[in-house]
Design a protein around this nucleic acid. Structure first.
Lengths: 201, 201
DNA sequence: TATTATTCGTACCAGTCGGTAACAAAGAGC
DNA sequence: GCTCTTTGTTACCGACTGGTACGAATAATA
């Protein structure tokens, strides 16, 4: 499915690079909170007129949704890859801790978590996608814990569903703290402490 | 210091009840996010004209700061009371867990945490007060842990500063989750799990 | 009664928001 | 040439924001 000019085009050739605009939107939404970035600002940053942007993305909601999709494809996929890596409990948790507290991409936080935190401010499309990604993330955390249980690496008293939620929220907390300029070493220490409950006998 | 009409008053008698307006503002900021409540909305809720409100509170920032002060006095004080209660580690943690996951006042979250989460959107007065309260809360958590250490109730490997931060953030996380409609029982379970790191030998 | 002081609310300000109508520009097909 | 289609931009819309100028209202004081 190559969607780069499948049509020979009939009318005036377009000069707007939609991918570039989307990249700029992702960067802006990601650095600042999505609620603090206006369509006007993105147009100015991208050097594109507002009607052009609206012709491409339909609405602010459409643009945010596209930005979230792009972000999920390029960044969140790494988290899913860590969880499905098939490594053991200890290694996977360490990889998660590294990602949350040391990955330079998380220096200004996570776009997904920023959107989730301000869910009520989102349009219907973007909100639905956020909830979908949230469910997918929970499922990934849970299946990871399930494989650990089968390997006998998990404390017996810990149930999978709540454990997955706990794990996900601790990672989210750590990344959110990075967005607010917290010291990475301190974040790592706290996240390590939080996840130590999984490594107990 | 009774500041209810210390002056016999000279001009037109005031009909506006500033305390009532403040209560309404606190309730509105508390239920919804402060960033989502406009001065206009508060005026409408309180049945007060905008200039009246501005004469009393100076600016939106002043109103928010007054609302936060009122909230701290009426609600946050309870948390400080729990921490300074002089009870042991286990009882105090249980009280914190009860407060965060079961107190009906926290059903729509905590105004202080909502403001802290959107700190960059606040005016200078309110932001300064948020940071001040944050420092005070951290100090309270730390002095609580210190007293537990002196009683030998704390794991030896746990340092006080990071431990206090961890404790505070876990409570904040739990209350924030309540604001987003999470199941209280699930929140209690997760917070209990998170705080179990303090009860280990 | 006239003055002065204080509070009241209407009606406005400039700015920003998301979104669009309307027209100009530029190519392809006839 | 002309038309048709698509993209581009300017300039606007109504709604809302925080904030205020200003005159009417209401009291104590002179």
């Amino acid at each position: 499915m190559n969607d780069t000019d499948p049509k020979p085009a009939r009318g005036r050739p377009k000069t707007m690079d939609a991918d570039k605009v989307l990249d700029i939107a992702v960067a802006a939404y990601w650095r600042d909170d999505p609620a603090d970035v206006s369509v006007n600002a993105i147009c100015q940053l991208a050097g594109v007129s507002k009607p052009s942007l609206y012709r491409e993305f339909g609405s602010e909601d459409g643009l945010m949704r596209a930005a979230l999709d792009s972000y999920a494809e390029r960044v969140l996929s790494d988290v899913f890859a860590i969880l499905h890596g098939g490594r053991g409990l200890k290694d996977t948790l360490e990889a998660l801790i590294d990602f949350a507290s040391a990955d330079p991409r998380m220096e200004t936080g996570c776009l997904f978590y920023k959107m989730r935190a301000g869910k009520h401010r989102l349009g219907p499309e973007t909100r639905a996608r956020v909830e979908e990604l949230d469910r997918a993330a929970h499922a990934a955390y849970e299946s990871f814990l399930e494989s650990c249980r089968e390997a006998g690496e998990l404390p017996v008293g810990l149930s999978l569903g709540p454990g997955a939620k706990y794990l996900g929220e601790q990672v989210a907390l750590a990344i959110t703290q990075r967005a607010s300029g917290e010291d990475p070493a301190s974040i790592r220490e706290m996240l390590t402490l939080a996840l130590s409950v999984f490594a107990r006998p």
